[in-house]
Design a protein around this nucleic acid. Structure first.
Lengths: 340, 340
DNA sequence: TTGTAAGCGTTATCAA
DNA sequence: TTGATAACGCTTACAA
């Protein structure tokens, strides 16, 4: 709490500048003094004060990770990986949840000024950021699982995503090829805003269209409420089942929703996949342990996190921004089968 | 990035001290100047620099939450609640994962010095902290879900726990009352260290003993590896099933383990609860949506988090430490039934 | 190769 | 009620 660079300087009989130089390996110092200083540091158990350092250097070596819905199990693995890598590079990570009603970018901008942040990672949210946003931010920013509109300058930010629409297309077409025609869809709709869920919904629509199946809004449940994915999936599925007696399969836009939906189906006496096929999205661990194991579109969470970190630290070193699009894989584990 | 208190002072035509006073509501300032200053603040979009403030005040208004296993779904809700409350009180939260092999207390001590932390919350881990630890820490510390040994001075820290042993006793006795005699047990063992899991294991043993059932080590699986709860439960259950053809129920020390165990049982062709009863611990959301819904001991996560926050901020205001023990509730949802 | 000294943006003391 | 001014602990010219 109270041992400062002065104490170290005094004990080792050198000036504070020298201590600083030794500690930061900057400038030139003789091995002899170097050792004297290090001995004093050890003896006093000296730890540099980061606030002073940050103040002086005008930066805090801190990255903030703002996650829209921090409790989303899919984000867990990512958060964990990011946390590790950030610390590995000698930075600190501040993790913030963004509420349903909060705007992540305004939060980010405030935090940056308030804490002299060095960088921002935005997880989740939407695709609606503007040039203005990134300029006001003033520090490197990586969007993870989302991107910005196409009219936004790609030099202003980095992004790491999958092709939500194409992957969802893949999932839906998989069911179609299994012979399903009455395919329900559960996704979380946020009005006009472009979100990953909305893109996935488009993939669903396009797959139907590409295969000559008429889009039927009765098969879609998407009322938006601030529920957990499990609960949301459960409620939406109950909904769908009353309205569609002929539905043989359901596409959901998250594994949590798929689990909720599966529970609703099972509670209603249906068997999976015999009576109804269900497919999820994301690839969270528990989907594999569910009964039955759920088919899903699995996002490469680990790689995506590493990609985001690389992009961020690249920008920190004035390298160019990067825009990575990863491929996801269709995992067939038994919750979908061909229609009788 | 660059608008400082000086700019505000210049624009509003007052001294920087006055600006500081207005902003912090300290000292006395006329309403007139107050408004002038606030107008300038708004116009310049001024945000105080926290590093300077922290340096000056010798504290950072930052709390660190170190979680042993940040990806544990049970910790999610707690982390979320804590994050919200900490920010609501005007503090920042730094969330750190503690690896399997890292020692949370040494990490905490380092972080405190390095970042001028105001307080520490330790989640998970063990019950092995010492007087020395808390003294070296030098800032208020709350243990959440664990406590310190009984020989440690209660004035040095706060804690928020449940009575792990008693709750596990309750779970086991519930199965015994359902007529089970060959009851398996899955828990994560860390050698001699006292952990919540170990206490729960003792509860299991004592319940057997209290009901005249001989303890049989063959019914216990606890090899410790750094796997996720799901995977661990799955593997331990496979293990137990080969060794015990007569086992009719299993007590697990986490819902994640229960889910893994359930999956293993189902994969082996067993029905839950007809062929085998399974009970979990914690009360994570997905356990309810599992097929079948899992019986469990549900910890009041939300209340516990609030208790931890209250304890921490109490200590920050020099109030006494508190040691809260919450009650957990046995949720009967259908994964346990009476033995035939 | 080393030490002195000038800030970094605040807060707090002390005169005015 | 206000405004200079001295810290807070550090980094970094600039001198020595």
């Amino acid at each position: 709490m109270s041992v400062t660079i002065k104490d170290v300087a005094r004990l080792s009989g050198v000036g504070i500048a020298t201590v600083s130089r030794v500690l930061n390996n900057s400038g030139i110092t003789s091995n002899e003094t170097k050792e004297k200083v290090m001995a004093a540091v050890r003896e006093l158990n000296y730890v540099p004060n980061n606030n002073a350092r940050s103040l002086k250097m005008g930066q805090s070596r801190t990255i903030a990770l703002l996650a829209k819905s921090i409790t989303n199990p899919f984000f867990q693995k990512m958060i964990h990986t990011i946390e590790q890598k950030v610390f590995m590079r000698g930075y600190h990570l501040e993790i913030r949840n963004v509420n349903y009603s909060e705007h992540e970018m305004s939060m980010a901008i405030k935090e940056v000024q308030d804490r002299n942040l060095n960088g921002i990672i935005l997880m989740g949210g939407n695709f609606e950021y503007t040039n203005e946003d990134f300029k006001r931010l003033g520090v490197p920013c990586v969007l993870l699982t989302v991107s910005a509109g196409k009219d936004v300058d790609k030099e202003l930010y980095s992004s790491v995503i999958i092709d939500d629409e194409a992957e969802s297309f893949k999932a839906t077409e998989y069911l179609i090829q299994l012979g399903h025609r009455r395919i329900g869809c559960i996704y979380s709709n946020q009005g006009e805003v472009t979100t990953p869920n909305k893109l996935r919904f488009r993939g669903y629509q396009k797959a139907l269209e590409a295969n000559g199946i008429a889009y039927d809004p009765v098969l879609v449940s998407a009322i938006n409420v601030s529920e957990s994915g499990y609960e949301f999936g459960f409620n939406m599925m109950k909904n769908l089942m009353v309205r569609n007696k002929d539905m043989t399969a359901v596409v959901t836009m998250a594994d949590t929703m798929a689990i909720g939906a599966a529970k609703a189906a099972i509670s209603a006496g249906l068997r999976i996949p015999e009576d109804i096929s269900i497919i999820g999205f994301d690839g969270i661990e528990v989907a594999e342990y569910y009964n039955p194991s759920l088919d899903t579109i699995c996002q490469p969470a680990e790689q995506m996190s590493l990609g985001a970190i690389d992009a961020l630290f690249g920008m920190l070193q004035n390298e160019k921004t990067s825009h990575l699009v990863y491929g996801a894989s269709l995992l067939k584990r038994g919750s979908c089968t061909s229609v009788k």
